[in-house]
Design a protein around this nucleic acid. Sequence first.
RNA 1: GCCUCAGUAGCUCAGCCGGUUAGAGCGGCGGACUGUUAAUCCGUAGGUCGUAGGUUCGAGCCCUACCUGAGGCGCCA
Length: 477
Amino acid sequence: MRRTEIAKVLAQPVLNESVTVMGWVRAFRGNRFIALNDGSTPHTLQIVLDAEKMEESILKKIKFHACLSVTGQLVASQGAGQAVEVLAENVEILGECNPEDGYMMQPKAQTMEFLRTNAHFRMRTSTFSSVFRLRHAVAFAVNKFYNDRGFFYMHTPIITGSDAEGAGEMFHVTTLDVNNPPRTEEGGVDFGQDFFGKATNLTVSGQLQGEIAALALGKIYTFGPTFRAENSNTPRHLAEFWMIEPEVAFNDIYDNMDLAEEFTKYLINYCLENHLADLELLDKRLAEEQNALPKDKRRAMGLIEQLRFVVDNAFERITYTEAVEILMKSKPYKEKKFEFPVEWGIDLQSEHERYLVEKEFKKPVIVRNYPKEIKAFYMRLNDDDKTVAAMDVLFPGIGEVIGGSQREDRHDVLLERVKAVGIPEEELWWYLQLRQFGGAPHAGFGLGFERMVQFITGMSNIRDVIPFPRTPGNAEF
RNA sequence: GCCUCAGUAGCUCAGCCGGUUAGAGCGGCGGACUGUUAAUCCGUAGGUCGUAGGUUCGAGCCCUACCUGAGGCGCCA
């Protein structure tokens, strides 16, 4: 089928020539004007009909979200809302769309909750089509950023036999009959008879395999789906989400922080430079959403304003110890407004992180050197013997977008940590050998892809930046 | 997993102190309309109030349980 994409018609209009466009009706006004959108752009193309020349049966079928093919002259518009329009000579109905038959979408603002239950149609709305064009843009920018800097894209396994990744509850993968599994002599399930000859899970992180690659190729990144069987019910968590995990040989914690800051700024900049129209639309949407809130609950900045602010300012970098000191001097601490205690050794709660990011510094903050007790076994022990070279990048509104560290590269120290936290050594034989044979200092981090898309699009619920969200109790579509 | 709030027409919501035939806007349907911008105007049809019990002369409204959704917290990315 020959058609011209609406994005092209609008970007490079060839006036007074015939053009064929195909798309979905966003509005039909005055029995005369159709706003047509084909997904290639947030904008619509205006189609002008001559009702007297139209067949009644076709006119009746021009409904909200019906799919049309329209051929006609592209001309300068007489109306004020658009530069060009198509004078329809032929209109073909490609797909009817009858509310009478139960079509539930309407040309008006609908709640995110309602649209979520109709995820098969929500991408036809201006908000979601912009969100998903931006999701693509961020994904593309991820690959471009690393490719341009000599990183290699590494595909780590989705099914894993290791349960020592240490990032949370896992989904089991099995082909055994769950109603009647083979049993061991002790009465447990005999995973020796399972597909892989052992118990397997969906991955919670590609980091450990990423380290294998980094200690051979130097600079690598992973970008793929990860799974957490945590019963997390928040607007920031998904059971299935995508994660980007760069891992770099010869990087220390400071190089790691530099990379994290440069990377996140690049992603935001890429969207500002290449998808401003989508961002403007979402900026407007967010402003309307914020206007409905009481004044003290509103965001300090508009969407685009905040994106530019993050790009234009250096991230604040502090140690965990400094963070605790700042919190203990803070007004909410002195007035006992914090729900959770603040003292050296405890993990920072989201109320604490939010204070640092939104009140104290008013910009992204990187906190490093956390107590070893509250961080993973693979993080490099600092010389103080109390803290590890971990770092969290905290963003306004969504909190932690990045968690990373310099990895423990000393075989003896790692072995001691593995034993201390009680992970069976044999689970990690290959991970330990990486240190034993040609090990190197290295560092990396994990960026939650959806959290980044959430920040860039201003959507308040993470379920609205992934096409088909997987959350506890929901795997529809 | 814990806490809070909500569930009334296709959608978004109103419904007083428990009291006759449960309301509105949008959407739908019928009609008008050749320069509209989520068009406008006239007319019209839709609901038994999340589910199951209970209290009461009487329940959309009160009570109990459950289901679903959202927000907060925890876990984290």
